[in-house]
Design a protein around this nucleic acid. Sequence first.
RNA 1: GCCGAAGUGGCGGAAUUGGUAGACGCGCUGGACUCAAAAUCCAGUCUGGCUUACACCAGGUGCCGGUUCGAGUCCGGCCUUCGGUACCA
Length: 821
Amino acid sequence: MRYPFSEIESKWQKFWEDNKTYRTDLTKSDKKLYTLVMFIYPSGAKLHIGHWYNYGPTDSWARFKKLQGYNVFEPIGYDAFGLPAEGYAIKTGIHPQDSTLKNIEDIREQLKKMGCMYDWDSELMTCAPEYYKWNQWIFLQMFKRGLAYRKNAPVNWCPKDQTVLANEQVVDGCCERCGTQVIQRNLYQWFFKITDYAEELLEGHNKIDWPEETILKQKNWIGKSEGAEVTFKIADNNNDEIKVFTTRPDTLFGVTYVVIAPEHPLVDKITKPEFKAGVDAYRESTKLLTEIERTSTVKEKTGVPTGAFAINPMNNEKVPVWIADYALITYGTGCVMAVPAHDERDFEFASKFNLPIRKVILQDDTNENDELKVAFTEVGTMINSGKFNGVRSDVGIGQVINYLEENNLGKRKINYRLRDWLISRQRYWGTPIPIIHCPKCGEVPVDESELPVLLPYDVDFKLGGESPLARNEKYINVKCPKCGTDAKRDPDTMDTFVDSSWYYLRFLDPKISDAPFDKNLADKWTPVDMYVGGKEHSVMHLLYARFFHKFLRDIGLVNSDEPFAKLVHQGVITKDGAKMSKSRGNVVNPNDFITRVGTDVFRMYLMFMGPYDQGGDWSDKGISGVERFVMRTYELFNEFKNVIKDYPPKDKYDIISLSDNEKKVYRKVNQTLKKFNEEIEHFRFNTAIASLMELINELKVLESCNKEIQSYVLLRFASMLAPVAPHLGEECWQIIGNEKSIFENPIAFAIDKEALVEDTVNIAVQVNGKLRATIPVTINSEQDSVKPLVFADDKVKKFTDGKTIVKEIFVKNKIYNIVVK
RNA sequence: GCCGAAGUGGCGGAAUUGGUAGACGCGCUGGACUCAAAAUCCAGUCUGGCUUACACCAGGUGCCGGUUCGAGUCCGGCCUUCGGUACCA
């Protein structure tokens, strides 16, 4: 029988919508379950396989939980600000707002056709003033507390497009759009002080159930390193000193020179006149390099001496001060103490410029006078280190730090690789920054009562050297709120990661107008219980959101420490081994399949393809397998119309009283229930669906069973279909005689544990570890009763006859291994 | 370079704590139904050897070695693929 998917799918979608089946009553928070997928960027393109792969299976999980009695909240919204819409506008002249709103209309329709459990009353879009008003409000809260600040910082600048580029838009040092080489330029930019939370962001990793891999990525990104800051005085100069950060204070006696970043302000002060020309030339040459070139590890090390000398605080030795671009102004103090013997980079540099290499950590089982071929960076014994000689270097680290602190030469110090979050974008399609620049008063925040600072519609958003908003006279020119002088608004907009850093809170009441979100609901409903999205957001989005949540907690708006209690990443679906993209022309359009096989089959096939977190290469080869399963299922249920109405089943049957076939299906459906529940719970959809296929294969004998058993089995089968194929599930549920929608009246069937155990099990019999026979024995048989059966077996005899039995290993219900000689 | 994930039939993949490798599905082969085809249903399908056949034997989870009565699973050393990252002192 053909499965009329299109009628059945529209029938149930209409039913769900008419009855608001998936509206969540947020006032009830016992057994609450907040399930969230990363919201969608409304581009002109249709929903692609990646969206389906993210949303479909996650929805199945949410439905499974709903049937288990959870009060599930599953919202969806639109991450509507951002560069692509603006790029599209530059190309076509269509205003970003017009194209975005149109795209949202289209995408909403497509999302509804997926048949997910979204609570459409909670929909939100970030480009609406009611939403971005609160970006501005949060910005002001941070500003008040010194967590939003402005500083001069280098940014990626495309000389052709005359605009700033985000790091993500720089590909191999070139502008993503036009291919021009990107240069560094200094601009005044707004930052969020995420570094204040560095330590807490690390600690928080212990409180969340996230993939290890993702936590590790964040840890590496934050890059905590412990060590010391050491002060080097400058010879013949009492005004200046060089502070270096090191994780290896144990190697201090091996310092043979000091390196300062070329752009470090100290360089001008300490460079000797006769070295000035060389230093200036070097500084010029490094400026020409891109960040990529400069930080490339393949590039040979360069540098020039300044003529100045620094004094090693440990032994008062004079060592030369060089500038070299392998010292980064952005990390630590911008100055490095160089220990060529025990640091690879210093070793390379010293070898090239003939600087001395002094061994101060002796590798075990080597001699002090052995020549060093490469830097030795492991633990060894300290030598040439005065009173620390003989100490193990890992122990020496702490001892040297203590010595430094006691003598006021340095101090214990922790450094982070994490930088503050640059949020300014010289862009139109984003949240305006609510700051007014007054020539007299400086940075003046817009009063909260004046929010939102509306993004004007009428703007020349074409490219050209400055923020588009700067060219809108009406927008940019204002009076200073403090003194009334002519002033200007900040012309920039915020990074769209600001929007996505707190949207999960707004979902709870997207229409609230006197607060960013309903604090009462947020206290009850956050953290989000299950968050599902791509690995590509491992660091940026997921770190920023955690930072926001902690900040909101600190100002008393939420009562939890972390936004997302559990995180799952769906895998990536590729085509012919490559990421799908328009430019490659390898995009698979889900609609082709939806119209051919229906959404249930398509979503089930995506789940059946393989492990959810691994994704895989797209092929429609196997889709017919799922299609056949769905047809056979539909056919089966149609053979038993109204069976539960006519023969209502009991909750449990005594398995001994059943016929062989009844026993078989009764057992199988209970075993399936157990397996299916466990698999879905852990996002192992492929094996969950395989278990349903196994079930239907066993149901060939259902016809010959008692009617009540038929009811018992089909009721449970339909309840398992409902999460993974919601339309089919509802239909089958109804066919067998249920009056109401299963999702309106969620039901979870208890497993009959007595039905799980088989009477007999097959025990594998091995001789010397090789399988020789399998023999059926009564379940839980002890070795004593199994042994005679084993040794009676012809095949076993064949391999044991004439041999000495050395050992016998018995594992109950599993294996009997005989070791012979 | 460093960090991470993964390598199992013709293919997608199972094997949840070391215990019968290949569940489930695709494809393929044979059969049933049909005038015929499609669809559907039934059976078979890791490789090699031997056999009329049933059976039996040997090998087999990227490669080499180890631990163990027993390894896809644990340990050591490699190879390949895919992701992330780029001198962080």
